[in-house]
């Protein structure tokens, strides 16, 4: 099997970096959108729900292409952001954007499910004790849906780690810049001598995924026990 080349190491670290950033920037908006969908009724709610779930049903290539049209150098949003020095096109930040968008439905679904499970009568009780709506959210809804938020975050991380189609369409696979782990593996399978390296990286991908999922399960179990008060 041999050892990892510098290029392979770069792809591994880039993937981990992109997945961490994607999870970190999605979490806040994910919690907000999940709460809006779970607790509020407003015009356009169905539209928002559909929009959030779009990346789940569209071919990833289509999502990547739409991102390219919007956030590319000549895209309407990309041009404006470029004025402020923010460039997504062919940049690792573009991979973060693509992974975030692709993982967002999974994140929102997990958080929304656990918010739906929070008894709204507890929220009414909190309001009766004088808690304004923002405090009800922070002291009741949020802590009680923490297990779902955690598993959603890990799911988001795992999805971001494996995202391929949208990322390669939006920012290509430039070694050292935008070539993530899946892109590197795909590249290696296209050259005759790449089998051993492809297998090495595949094992790494599998290892990271297993660690992430196991860690999330253990963490979620602990948090659930805390939240439900079984440790007392």
């Amino acid at each position: 099997m041999g050892t990892f080349t510098a290029e392979e190491m770069t792809a591994i670290w880039l993937s981990v970096k992109v997945a961490c950033w994607a999870t970190a920037v999605s979490l806040g908006p994910g919690i907000l959108v999940a709460w809006l969908l779970a607790r509020r009724s407003f015009p356009g709610r169905i539209l928002l729900d559909a929009l959030v779930h779009l990346p789940l049903v569209l071919p990833p290539v289509v999502t990547g292409y739409l991102l390219l049209l919007l956030f590319g150098r000549k895209g309407p949003v990309g041009q404006v952001l470029a004025e402020f020095g923010i460039v997504f096109a062919f940049n690792w930040t573009g991979a973060v954007l693509a992974c975030s968008v692709m993982a967002f439905p999974l994140l929102v679904r997990a958080i929304r499910l656990s918010m739906d499970a929070v008894d709204t009568r507890l929220e009414d009780a909190a309001a009766g004790l004088g808690a304004p709506p923002w405090a009800v959210f922070l002291t009741v809804t949020l802590p009680l849906s923490l297990p779902g938020i955690l598993s959603g975050a890990i799911l988001c991380f795992a999805k971001a780690l494996g995202e391929f189609g949208a990322t390669i369409t939006f920012v290509a696979a430039i070694p050292g810049v935008t070539q993530t782990l899946p892109a590197a593996i795909y590249g290696l399978t296209q050259v005759p001598s790449g089998d051993a390296a492809a297998l090495r990286l595949t094992l790494v991908a599998a290892l990271i995924a297993i660690i992430a999922v196991t860690a999330s399960e253990l963490l979620a179990r602990r948090v659930r026990r805390r939240v439900e008060g079984r440790d007392a």
Binding site: R121, D124, A125, G128, P132, L144
Partner: peptide, 22 residues
Amino acid sequence: LPPHRRHVGQVFQEARLFPHLN
């Protein structure tokens, strides 16, 4: 006045205590 500004204390059939707090 919304519920949180009414100063009306309530006790229900099920206690509705917050499970995550002692």
